[in-house]
Nucleic acid binder design. Structure first.
Lengths: 226, 226
DNA sequence: GCCTATTTCTGTACGGTGTACAAACTGTAC
DNA sequence: GTACAGTTTGTACACCGTACAGAAATAGGC
């Protein structure tokens, strides 16, 4: 409200910002998984004492929360609000976009599962999903349940797929993740792994976008076909 | 092979067993969540020095793994192998049984998500799911994908539902968990929460078995209806 | 009977974590 | 120049998982 609002505060030239901390944390998360993203590690990467972080965030959980919200914020919800596009296609786009954004940072996804997803971005995403489901002709109750189902599927699959690999650095692309997942499943033929008979094959399919999309279609079939 | 195989080893009278450690850990998990289930806490509950645990388990991860396998072992797979029962009904029973067993120990479920589920019991469960899906008339590839979808749903929903509450003690029954979940969502009317319009309502539905079953039916509809 | 081998448990310690507290520093405003 | 306020650091605490050496206790061989 006062006229003289600018960068005119006492104190030393600040070498730290919220975004610098978040970037460093996300880098560490991508490189070394959840174990690498310690407060000391974050501060060290920015070249600062560990406690300096607490000037900008009340605790480590707040840093995590900010990163999660940042990632969810990269999903442009406006694109999926076009009511000329059929609702199934809108949901599918959203699910694939979300998967793409989040599996690029497996370590961050691992952190999501631990804490509550109750930030503004997470709630907005939920809200949008509800809105789209309303266009499907479902009543409010069914739309709420379908939203639950879809959220479980989208986040559940990402969670299960990245949980095992979240702590291992360097497995960012889908191919690398599939390779890492297949390692240790000797019963699986090198090529065409989804067709193997045993449970090991199922474990291996966890990481394939193809399976993900198939499952999404089956869910949408189930929702629409009633 | 030798005839004199009995309890005839030197050493002091053991006050510790694998199962005593696992029981103490599970108790702490139920009471105080993952943070309470520390090695020091486990040992303290049994009345022993922390390092004594390492006589029976190589590390803490092994304790967790043993607990997970123990819980999965409580699910009697033989009951679901009756081929006279329709495959959909068999899968539904399995999913509900699993949910019941696991949501009784939210803290343990939280631990499951972190580590790989590659123990004998987990693989057997997978195998059984595959087998049942084969009876549905799907080919091997589709059965594998459907298995993926179902595993994601069953474990994903449990994971998402219990992640937030896993660290909070005393929320073991479904009613308590719903109450805890609803706390903080002021926009939700006290009764009939699934019908509220906003995303908060969807968040609240996470904990209801009704939603869980509804989603399961929609998935089975999607799988069967093609 | 003692002696010895073997197993279980304890004492202590190391490096790691998140974080609280007070002091030191660095800049702006008067 | 002096006072003030915001930023960063030094130090410390309680906790974590766990490695290592030694003590306690019991079995079998003589």
């Amino acid at each position: 409200m006062t006229a003289q609002a600018r960068s005119s505060k006492p104190g030393p030239r600040r070498t730290l910002t919220e975004s610098a901390i978040m970037e460093a944390a996300l880098d560490l998360l991508d490189e070394g998984g959840v174990t690498a993203a310690s407060v000391r590690g974050i501060a060290g990467r920015v070249g600062v004492a560990p406690n300096a972080v607490y000037t900008y965030f009340p605790d480590k959980a707040a840093v995590v929360k900010a990163i999660v919200e940042h990632l969810l914020g990269q999903v442009d919800l406006a694109v999926f609000s076009d009511r000329n596009v059929p609702w199934r296609q809108r949901i599918e786009s959203l699910a694939l976009e979300l998967r793409g954004r989040l599996t690029a940072h497996p370590g961050a996804v691992n952190l999501m599962i631990g804490g509550p997803m109750d930030g503004p971005r997470a709630l907005a995403l939920n809200e949008h999903l509800m809105e789209t489901l309303r266009d499907s002709g479902l009543d409010a109750g069914e739309a709420a349940r379908a939203s639950y189902l879809l959220i479980v599927y989208v986040f559940g699959s990402i969670a299960l797929e990245t949980a095992e690999l979240g702590d291992k650095p360097g497995a960012s692309s889908e191919d690398e993740r599939i390779a890492a997942r297949l390692k240790g499943f000797s019963a699986i033929p090198a090529a065409g792994y989804p067709l193997s008979a045993g449970a090991t094959a199922v474990m291996a399919t966890y990481v394939s976008t193809r399976q993900y999309t198939w499952g999404l279609h089956r869910i949408l079939d189930g929702i629409a076909g009633e």
